[in-house]
Design a binder for these strands. Structure first.
Lengths: 206, 206, 206, 206
DNA sequence: GATGAATGAGGATTCATTCAT
DNA sequence: AATGAATGAATCCTCATTCAT
C-alpha cells in the first residue's frame, strides 16, 4: 500500500492526464501546450519527447478515454439480454464515466465542433457502439420497447446519449444551477437511479 | 420582393451572424477575429468600429440568441396552464431554435467550458428560465407529473434541456451517425413529435 | 534633387532590401525573420503584413534580383551580333551586378544547396538565359569561337558564368585573399577589363 | 573482398561522412544535428561522445576535406617546374575533388557567408595554397604566361579557382542545366580535358 | 465607417546541448 | 559508447488590438 505511493506514473500518462483535464475545460484551441506542460511539471519542449504534436496528444487523450466505453458496449452487446440488461449497461457506463468525468466534456467539445476530428471520431469510435446500442434496443431487451416506431428508435438512442453524456458534460453549468457538485458520488448515484427510473418509463412496459 | 434582396442588413448584425456560426463551430478560443471579419467581407480592424472587443462580440451573440428563448419562457410562465401548456412551449422553443440552430452549440461550448463566461451566463440568462421551468413543472401542468419526487424534478428539467439542446448541439455528430441532416425542416418536425411523445411518457399520465 | 531624400521607399521594398543582404550573407536557414525586421526597423510581426512567409520573402528577393539579369540577356539575345556583342553583355551584366552585389551570393547559396528552390529557380530563371547564352555563343558573335567543339560550348558557358558570378559571390573570401575590396568601383572595372581580355583569349581569335 | 563489407568505419568518421553531405547540401545553419545523427543511425546525444559541438563537427569536416588539397599544392609547389606542371596539378586536384565532391560546395557555403568561419578558413587553409599558386604562376611554369600583367595574375588565379571549384559546387545546378550528372566519371574527365585546353589558351603561349 | 500598417504578447514547435542511466 | 528524457533559447508565425489616414 505504501508501494502505491511510490509507483511512478509514466510521463506520457501524466501528460495525458493533464491534457485531459485542460482539453475538457477549455477545448483544444483554448489549451496552450505550455499549460499542459506546467501541469505535469515539465518544460513545454519535453512534451515533444513523448508526443509529436499537440494534436497527437489530443487524439491520444480521446483514444484512451473512449476505449473503455467502447469495450463496455461491446461486451454488453454480446452479453445476455436478460431483463437487467439495460440497468447493467447504465451502471457500468455511469461508473466508468465517474472515473473519467472529463471525457464527456471532451466528446461534447468535439461533437459540437464538428470538424475533421469529429469525422474520424465518429467513424472510429462512435458509430460502432451506436450501431450496437441501436441493434440492442431493436432486439428489445427485457422490458421491451412498447410503443416506439422503428424509425423513432435512433432518436431514442440519441436522446438517451444526450441525457447520460449531457449530465457529465454540463456538470459545470449544472453545478451553478443546482448549487451542488453534480459529480459527487452521492449525486452520481442519485442520477443513476433517476436515469434507471426514466428508462423504465421510456421503455413503457409498465 | 426584389426589395428583399436590397435590404441592407446593418453591419453589426452581419458581424453577429458571422460570429455566431464561427463561435458555434470552433468555440471562442478557436475563432480568430480575422475569420469573422473575412466572413463579413470586412477588414478585422473594422469590427472594432462596431464592437469594442472580441469578447463583446461573443457576448452580443449570446445575448441576441438567448433573449428570444427567455422571452418564450417568460410568456409561458405567465400563460395559462392548460393541458397543452407543455406542447406549446416545446413547439415554440423548437421553432425558435430552428431559426438560430447554432445557438445550442454555442451554449454547449460555454456550458462545457465552465469558465467565467459561464458564471455570468448562468446567472443572467439561464437561472431565471430554469427556475421558471422548474416552478412550472412543480405546479404541474395539464398531464401532471405522476410518480416523480420533488427532488427528482431538477434532474428531470436538466435531462429535458439536454435532450432538446443536445439534439441541436450534436447536430454535426448526429448527421454523421444518422447520415442525414438533423436540422432539415422535416427532421426537426419529426424530432418535435418525438419529444412530445417522450414528454407524455415522462409525465407518466398514461 | 532634395526631393530624392524625401522619397519614401515602400515598406515591402525595404524588407526585400534588408532580406537580400542577410540572405546573401547567411543563407536562408541562417537568417532569422527577426533580423530582417530589425534591419528594417520593424516588429517581426509586421513583415507578415507584407509577405505571407519567410519563404515568400526569399522568393521575392530572388525574383526581384534575377529579373534585370534576365532582361539584359533577353535584350542581348535579340540584339545585333556585331563584333562588340560579347563586350556589351559583359559590361551590362557587370554593371547590373555592381548594383545588386549580393545577388550572386544568393544565387550561389541556392545553387550550392540544390534543394527544391533550385529546381524552380533553374527552370524559371536560369534555363532561358542559359539557353540564350549558349545559342548566342553557337551562332558565333564577332570574334568567333575558334577551336572549341560543339560539345565543349556548354562547359565554356558554365565556366564563364562561374567566373563572373564567382567573382561577386566570393567577394568576402577574395577580400581576405587580396586584402582589398573586390566590389569597389575601381576593382570592378579592373575585373571587367580582365574578363574582356580573358574572353578574347577564350574566343581564340587572338 | 568480403572483408570490405565488414570493415568497421570508426564512428567519428561516419559522423563526418554524414555531416559532410548535409553541410554541403544545406549549409551549417540549415543542418540540424538530429539529421546528422539520423544519417549515421545514432541518437543525437551520441554525437557528443565524439565531438564537443556541432561547430566542432563542422570544422572537422572542413579540416578533413581541405587537408589533402593543401598537401597536393604543397607537393606541387616544391616539385619540378617541368612543362607538365600545370597539368599535373589540375589532374591531381580534380581527382581529389572527385573523391570528396561535396567539399567545394562546403567551401562555397563558407566563402559565400564570409562569417567568422571564413576568416579562419582563409588564413589557415586558403591563403597558403593561394600564395603558392600565385608564386608558381609568377615563376612561370612550362608554357609561360604570355601577355598577363603582374597585377592581373591574382585575378587569373581567382578565376581559375572559380572555374574548378565552381564546376563541383554548382553541380546540382549544372545537372539541371545540362540534364546529366556533372560528377560522373565520364563528365569529370571531359571537364578535366576542357580545363586543360582552357589553361593552355589562358597561358597564351601558342 | 473602413482600412493598411504596426505591434506586444503569445502560439506551437525546433534546436543544440546536457545528464543520468 | 549509447540513449531517453529534459531543457532554455530560438524560430516562424498568429492573434487581438490600435491608430493614422
Amino acid at each position: 500500500m505504501s508501494q502505491a505511493e511510490t509507483i511512478r506514473v509514466p510521463t506520457p500518462d501524466r501528460i495525458l492526464d493533464a491534457a485531459e483535464v485542460l482539453f475538457a475545460e477549455r477545448g483544444f484551441a483554448g489549451t496552450p501546450v505550455r499549460d499542459i506542460a506546467a501541469r505535469v511539471g515539465l518544460n513545454p519542449a519535453s512534451l515533444y519527447n513523448h508526443f509529436p504534436s499537440k494534436q497527437a496528444i489530443y487524439e491520444a487523450v480521446l483514444e484512451r478515454g473512449v476505449r473503455p466505453l467502447i469495450d463496455i458496449l461491446e461486451v454488453a452487446a454480446h452479453g445476455e439480454l436478460d431483463p437487467d440488461w439495460g440497468d447493467r449497461i447504465l451502471e457500468t457506463v455511469m461508473s466508468q464515466l465517474e472515473r473519467t468525468p472529463h471525457l464527456p466534456r471532451l466528446i461534447q467539445h468535439e461533437a459540437v465542433s464538428g470538424g475533421e476530428h469529429l469525422a474520424r471520431l465518429a467513424r472510429r469510435w462512435l458509430l460502432p457502439p451506436y450501431a450496437q446500442a441501436l441493434a440492442a434496443v431493436k432486439r428489445g431487451p427485457g422490458p421491451g420497447l412498447a410503443g416506439w416506431d422503428d424509425e423513432e428508435l435512433p432518436l431514442l438512442v440519441i436522446a438517451w446519449l444526450n441525457m447520460i453524456f449531457g449530465y457529465f458534460a454540463m456538470a459545470p453549468l449544472t453545478a451553478e444551477l443546482l448549487d451542488r457538485d453534480p459529480l459527487s458520488r452521492e449525486n452520481l448515484e442519485r442520477q443513476t437511479g433517476f436515469l434507471r427510473k426514466l428508462a423504465l418509463r421510456l421503455a413503457g412496459g409498465d
